[in-house]
């Protein structure tokens, strides 16, 4: 077997290993989803956000950036949604229950868990 053949075989093996690895370690394809009264009103891939911006949904003002999404202000009394801070990890969900606004960070290939018991 020539050196060239061995090189091809090694390259193929590396290619296949990469394919396997990609199925175990999905990229950071995080999407912020915003629901108002159960209806999905906005979804934004965090990686596509170049400059942070705000969004008003049912009495809540939300701030979106590359780093995540947070409640900036809300007309609710307890302000728990604001106190929570920035949602940035897969599976994180926060709601402003009085205003019926839910924010979730999701990924199409979430390999960590399916739900959270709390």
């Amino acid at each position: 077997m020539k050196k060239g053949d061995a090189l091809i075989i090694v390259l193929c093996a590396v290619l296949c290993l990469c394919l396997f690895a990609s199925s175990f370690f999905p990229g950071k394809n995080l999407i912020a989803e915003i629901y108002s009264d159960g209806v999905l009103v906005a979804a934004k891939a965090l990686s596509e956000i170049e400059e942070e911006y705000t969004l008003s949904v049912s009495g809540c003002e939300l701030e979106l950036s590359k780093n995540g999404i947070s409640f900036l202000s809300s007309t609710c009394k307890d302000k728990l949604c604001i106190k929570y801070g920035v949602l940035s990890k897969k599976g994180e969900t926060m709601a402003c229950i009085p205003n019926r606004v839910v924010v979730s960070i999701k990924s199409g290939k979430d390999k960590n868990f399916d739900a959270v018991a709390y």
């Binding site: 989803e33 629901y35 009264d37 159960g38 999905l40 969900t93 709601a95 229950i97 019926r100 839910v102 979730s104 999701k106």
Partner: peptide, 10 residues
């Protein structure tokens, strides 16, 4: 996947 508020929770 869908989320909403019901029963006073998510």
């Amino acid at each position: 996947n869908k989320s909403a508020i019901a029963m006073g929770t998510i």
